[in-house]
């Protein structure tokens, strides 16, 4: 809708105060990095990047300058005459980015740009994208299903659910103060509990597991039984079925060199606790709004 491939059923799309709702994609100051990159296979890297400038009839000299600038920015200056099929996934991704940015759009739309890359490469590209964004100073609209990516990359995050915005806020606020259960559950793991007719969530890393005899002063505590223990490297995830109903998952940093220094086991009776100000009250939702629908 921002790029102009779809028409809004209602409402308007404004870019810098200008209503562009009725404009075709080629009349908008928006460029897109497509999920499958959509590089032109019959053109070289440099030709791909120059395409938008050529179409816009930018004079040849300036065109060459801007193309080589864009190539430099994505560190592909020595690949300018390669065909896209001769590039690796990460390189194609960068060509797609350069091809869009070289036109200096007002808004750059990135549609899951890193979805096709493996994890290591994706993390590396996240850093590069952030650097490039601050260099070119263009608004990036970044679509992703990867919650961590959304928090890492963004100045502002909008969480969509079935085409409706649930919350727009800073990444930190989104995580620490989700407005409803959908957002809490979609961004990270939430532990929603009903107590005294009120519903609240608490993040796993804010919950502590207490050994017997430890002081729990100033904390809200509950007792329960361990139902699952999963060691995931940086943390250990422990699920606890609470005696007063409901279940929570907590994450404990594996600070000790050996995780064996903890010896709790499944079905152990334990006490968990958290600081009262870490509890986030939320509005209850229609209970059958299942988590599968959240990806929209």
């Amino acid at each position: 809708m921002i790029a102009g491939f779809e028409e809004p059923d209602s409402g308007r799309v404004e870019i810098a105060g200008l209503d562009v709702s009725g404009l075709a994609p080629y009349d908008r100051e928006v460029n897109t990095v497509f999920q499958d990159y959509a590089l032109f296979p019959h053109m070289s890297v440099a030709e791909n990047i120059a395409y938008g400038l050529e179409v816009a009839k930018v004079p040849k000299g300036e065109r060459r300058e801007r193309v080589s600038g864009a190539l430099e920015m994505v560190r592909l200056s020595d690949h300018d005459d390669r065909k896209p099929s001769e590039l690796s996934g990460g390189q194609r991704q960068r060509v797609a980015l350069a091809r869009a940015i070289v036109n200096r759009p007002r808004v750059l739309l990135l549609d899951e740009p890193l979805g096709a890359l493996d994890l290591k490469l994706r993390e590396q590209m996240q850093v590069e994208l952030k650097q490039i964004q601050s260099e070119v100073d263009i608004t990036f609209v970044y679509v992703t299903h990867d919650q961590d990516e959304a928090l890492t990359m963004s100045d502002r995050v909008a969480v969509f659910n079935k085409g409706k915005i649930e919350q727009v806020s800073l990444p930190r606020d989104l995580y620490e103060h989700p407005v409803n259960e959908f957002v809490a559950d979609f961004v990270g793991i939430s532990n929603a509990l009903d107590r005294d007719g009120k519903r609240f969530t608490i993040r796993p890393e804010k919950i502590r597991l207490f050994e017997s005899g430890e002081s729990t002063e100033g904390l809200d505590t509950e007792s329960g039984r361990i139902s699952e223990i999963a060691y995931v490297g940086m943390v250990t995830r422990i699920s606890v079925a609470l005696d007063s109903g409901g279940a929570i998952q907590l994450a404990r940093q594996n600070i000790e060199a050996e995780s064996s220094s903890h010896n709790e086991a499944i079905n152990d009776q334990v006490v968990v606790g958290w600081r009262p100000d870490h509890v986030v009250p939320i509005q209850s939702q229609i209970p059958n709004e299942s988590s599968e629908e959240k990806s929209s």
Partner: peptide, 18 residues
């Protein structure tokens, strides 16, 4: 066959970083 496969993301995950 070589050119038509083109520039999609297919195979991107197997590609080298640089």
């Amino acid at each position: 066959a070589a050119t038509a496969r083109g520039a999609g993301a297919a195979g991107a995950t197997t590609g080298a970083t640089n």
